[in-house]
Design a protein around this nucleic acid. Structure first.
Lengths: 201, 201
DNA sequence: TGTACATCAGTGAACGCGCGTTCACTGATGTAC
DNA sequence: TGTACATCAGTGAACGCGCGTTCACTGATGTAC
């Protein structure tokens, strides 16, 4: 690749670098200068693309939600078509994403750094939730948004997947269940069994 | 209170100040100097009681787990004696604690700052988990540690409470369920209903 | 009870560091004519 | 196709800030005799 004075495509490059920084050093140690350095660009350059560190992290969190949905969709396509299997696939995708992108998951759900009032971020975050609502809707055969009981089922499905994901990231589920020594398929089965308990038709 | 050169009881005072800092500014903005300032002590003083910021946060996280168990126990004492009610009370206490101590909860479960290999912290963290195991044990009438299926029930109970708690802190459960406009008792009922879905006898 | 002395628990100045942000600059690119 | 010029997207020096940590110090407390 030619070494230009102008990078040409710095914005996505910064996002990539930011994600790597996050992965290696965690949300709490995140710094804009380190991102610029990793992107091999002076530390003043990001200002031309993102207002500040918060702007960059907000964009990155948004991308995270989009990728979360992608991971879930991939799982769903590989699963059986019946509503319960689809809902489980969503949950497994959720956990899968969290495990493989722990720091990003943290940024998305537990960090104060992204600007949660940002419209694009809110849209991306809601779309993941919306998918879940649809899944539960087809399981129950009704639109959850008009039905408080169904809404609780949505919440239960989300909470158990989210709880498992979050506890797995800290290593607490590992200690309790010993996932580490299990084959991937067995682990998924165990997780599905656990989530299934929170899914009532 | 007399204004002494020696504070006399600085260690607990620092822990109190640290918790206030956490509450007001969040984990990500935590600094030792701010804690010292809040405790009305020079910024060099904490070194006599805690090795560094990590030491202070590790101790604080440990205290958090102890308080979590206390909140749960209080709820359990106020609940019916049957195992299912006890388990639900544990869950409601968990959520209650998380809501009222959001930043501390984050420190305990999602932060990289405490030293997770610290023996006291590990003990405190495990004790909360142990209580849960006991509750599920008396619900199922067997010791979960010798029974993989029961262990999954433990994990399900924990995950749904943890997931609800974490999602409530970020305000996501709020948006879905509208807890804000509910009376405390109704809200607890809704939460119990959701958690109940993950509890199979 | 009094004195000498060790230890404890603070103070505050000093250090070096990485941070975000600003700004004058400059090379590269795109556009008008 | 060539030239002039505006705009874009970088550079790198400079700034002020809060941070953690160190260290010589000093006031308060506890203990031995």
């Amino acid at each position: 690749m030619k070494k230009n004075y102008h990078h040409g495509d710095l914005a996505p490059e910064l996002l990539r670098a930011a994600e790597e920084e996050l992965r290696e050093n965690g949300v709490e140690a995140f710094s804009l200068r380190a991102v610029a350095k990793r992107a091999k660009v002076s530390h003043g350059a990001p200002a031309h693309h993102f207002k500040d560190a918060q702007g960059l992290l907000t964009a990155l969190a948004g991308i995270g939600y989009e990728r979360l949905v992608q991971v879930q969709d991939k799982r769903k396509r590989a699963a059986m078509a019946d509503p319960k299997a689809q809902l489980l696939a969503s949950g497994l995708g959720y956990i899968d994403f969290a495990e493989k992108n722990a720091a990003l998951f943290r940024l998305m759900f537990s960090s104060e750094r992204p600007d949660r009032s940002d419209a694009r971020l809110a849209t991306a975050a809601n779309s993941a939730f919306h998918n879940l609502t649809v899944d539960v809707g087809s399981l129950l055969g009704s639109d959850p948004r008009s039905n408080p009981t169904a809404m609780r089922q949505v919440m239960a499905s989300w909470a158990i997947a989210h709880g498992l994901a979050d506890l797995m990231i800290v290593g607490r589920a590992e200690r309790a269940m010993g996932f580490g020594s299990m084959k991937r398929k067995d682990r998924d089965e165990a997780l599905a069994d656990i989530m299934l308990r929170a899914i009532t038709e």
